[in-house]
Design a protein around this nucleic acid. Structure first.
Lengths: 192, 192
DNA sequence: AACTGAACCCTAGCACTGCTAGACAAACGA
DNA sequence: TCGTTTGTCTAGCAGTGCTAGGGTTCAGTT
């Protein structure tokens, strides 16, 4: 038994190593640079080893996405916890969200831009994704306003943040006035 | 002279054929299916011909994007022209924008998701892109509200629409309540 | 009318991609 | 000690974007 357990542990370790290495490589050089050959070389195994852990590159992206979702949930919750009013909580959430996207562009891409083979907004959505949305809902639900479902409000506000994050990073929006745009969004959308 | 002119005309025709074929192929089977081999086969030339017109695949995507920008500007302007109040104009604009994104997903990707090698929000931004933004600004500038720069408001509103468009199409948002989310955005963001 | 030079396009190939079949070695249980 | 199983690697496939070099064709000149 003990031998099997050791092997399982080693396998789990290697799987974490793969995900961490893929993430690191993606953050350093972009997802295009994350090829199975380079990734295999970095973890010091041959390519086929990757396929004994994941069905393919898509699943590796998905694993990075799930890791990122958990971290984002933590970041959002810790930011909102420090705020003392609903209005402040929303502002803190917005900045925490955009900050996460800016600091972890590859992870953000894995989550919302690339195909990681994950199901979103469904019954079988993985728990980390549901939890990340829940973290948003906790702070945004209380400023939805009368007659607006908290879920719908959260979706809309989130989409707005997502638009700002992606357009800014893709060079479609000048980065200078980022804070003003966030302020506008918070002021107008959130009902105090 | 006449011979040269004919050749130039034929070259221009072929270039249009390349762009149109790339766009068609992308809309039918997605941008991943637009390979230089397939594209060359469809236009009934060899691959190197593509490179006598464009520096590479990226530039072909850029050409499709510019074509799409012009069409989007037309779509937005014709939608807003039919409305009779600022509030209605904004609502019409939002629906026209999302409608365009939903009906031309590949073109929308070329414009805002993929790398077409184009400059955005700069001096040397191509005219069609500037004009598309101008079309948004015309209708959105008048509902920015006091103390909010029309350009900044337009950027923010546009980013929100972009977030809705991309998240919905990528399966990150359920498509059912799309209209309600748009209504929420228009009601809250636009100052009547 | 024949020739020359340039414009044009195609074949073939490079280095890379994700992914997999089959050989091989190591470690295990009997 | 001997199979058997488990695990890993080498080698290869079909496909990608892109390019070098060789012909072929045709316009302009003699």
């Amino acid at each position: 038994m003990s031998v099997q357990e050791r092997k399982q542990r080693e396998r789990a370790d290697r799987e974490r190593l793969i995900v961490a290495t893929a993430r690191q490589l993606a953050e350093q050089q972009g997802w295009d640079a994350v090829t199975t050959r380079r990734l295999a070389e970095r973890i010091e195994y041959s390519q086929p080893v990757l396929y004994s852990h994941f069905k393919g590159k898509r699943e590796i992206i998905g694993a990075v996405a799930l890791e990122g979702a958990s971290e984002m949930a933590v970041a959002v919750r810790s930011a909102t916890a420090a705020a003392h009013s609903p209005r402040q909580r929303v502002a803190a959430l917005a900045h925490a969200y955009l900050d996460f996207a800016a600091r972890n562009p590859a992870v953000y891409d894995a989550l919302f831009q690339l195909d990681g083979g994950l199901a979103y907004a469904r019954e079988d959505t993985p728990q980390p994704l549901k939890d990340a949305f829940a973290a948003l809902l906790e702070a945004l639900g209380e400023v939805a306003g009368d007659g607006i479902a908290p879920g719908l409000f959260t979706e809309t506000f989130w989409a707005s943040l997502h638009g700002l994050a992606t357009l800014t990073r893709a060079g479609r929006l000048p980065p200078e006035d980022a804070d003003q745009r966030v302020a506008l969004l918070v002021d107008r959308l959130a009902v105090a």
